[in-house]
């Protein structure tokens, strides 16, 4: 386990040293600033009834989280996409894999390092957004911890999948597959939402099937469902709010999906030639 920690520390340090984490945080701060300004003007400048204002503020909070979620997912893929495939193709991994460290410890270490970095980022951003929103508008987020957990799981799932594809494919192919799969899940989520409103079972099945192939977007929709105020739920459907929320079973499925992906990644990496 000590070896895995060394790898985790190295991975975390890499992100910090490459200024990647700092740049992401800078983008995050700019994002919070923009969000704060919008919240401020909506609260103090808009000519709307208190009820409409509450709806707008609530929706805006979800919009913020939605954009934040996208930022986290992009960061997940961009930071980890090259870590295995790049080191295998450059031969860097050879100097590590010939040390007294098992292959599973290398991979789990990297996973821990990236997870640690993404968790810190997510805590800062979700925390920042929640505090800012409450401070400016008085909006109290619903089930923020539950929402945070689901967003974290979504990022972990994408990370596990990127690591898995990194053990098999080149960096570019890995990136295309990971983002492509998430795109598929995104489309599936929309199909399911539309199907809910038109009561179309076949279309709903297609949406669910897409979520089974790639459950990442289902986790966001569940997170949005948990965090939205009941009023926003009635408002309608949008990428930010959710009418047809994925079930608890889908969340469990996504967690198992992430764990299995990581397990397969460990197995493939342990067996492959370097």
């Amino acid at each position: 386990m000590k070896n895995a920690w060394t790898m985790a520390e190295l991975t975390f340090k890499e992100a910090a040293r490459k200024r990647l984490l700092w740049m992401a945080l800078l983008v995050g701060v700019a994002f919070l600033l923009l969000f704060g300004l919008a919240e401020h003007y909506q609260t103090f400048g808009a000519r709307a009834t208190p009820l409409v204002r509450r709806q707008i503020v609530g929706t805006q909070f979800l919009v913020g989280l939605y954009a934040l979620n996208f930022l986290v997912l992009a960061m997940t893929v961009l930071t980890s996409v090259d870590t295995l495939s790049g080191e295998i193709s450059s031969g860097t991994i050879q100097a590590i894999a010939t040390k007294p460290i098992r292959r599973d410890q290398i991979l789990i270490g990297k996973w821990l390092g990236f997870t640690g970095m993404l968790t810190v980022f997510l805590i800062l951003m979700v925390g920042g957004l929640t505090v800012e929103s409450y401070w400016i508008t008085g909006h109290k987020a619903h089930h923020i911890l539950r929402g945070f957990g689901l967003m974290w799981l979504e990022s972990s799932l994408l990370l596990a999948l990127t690591l898995l594809f990194g053990t098999i494919f080149s960096t570019l192919t890995n990136g295309i597959i990971a983002l492509g799969l998430h795109g598929l899940a995104f489309l599936g989520g929309w199909i399911e939402q539309f199907a809910f409103f038109t009561n179309n079972e076949r279309a709903a099945t297609i949406g669910v099937l897409a979520s089974i192939v790639m459950p990442s977007e289902a986790l966001w929709r569940r997170a949005a469902f948990e965090m939205q105020s009941p009023l926003v739920g009635v408002f309608g459907f949008s990428p930010f709010a959710t009418a047809a929320a994925p079930s608890g079973a889908m969340v469990v499925y996504a967690a198992v999906y992430a764990a299995v992906s990581l397990g397969v990644a460990v197995r493939v990496f342990s067996k492959r030639d370097l």
């Binding site: 890499e14 040293r17 490459k18 450059s90 031969g91 860097t92 050879q94 100097a95 007294p100």
Partner: peptide, 19 residues
Amino acid sequence: VETRRKIGFLPEHFQFYGW
């Protein structure tokens, strides 16, 4: 794995994290 404690290896065209 344990025997690697007693082994040293210089790969051809050695390279490592530039940072």
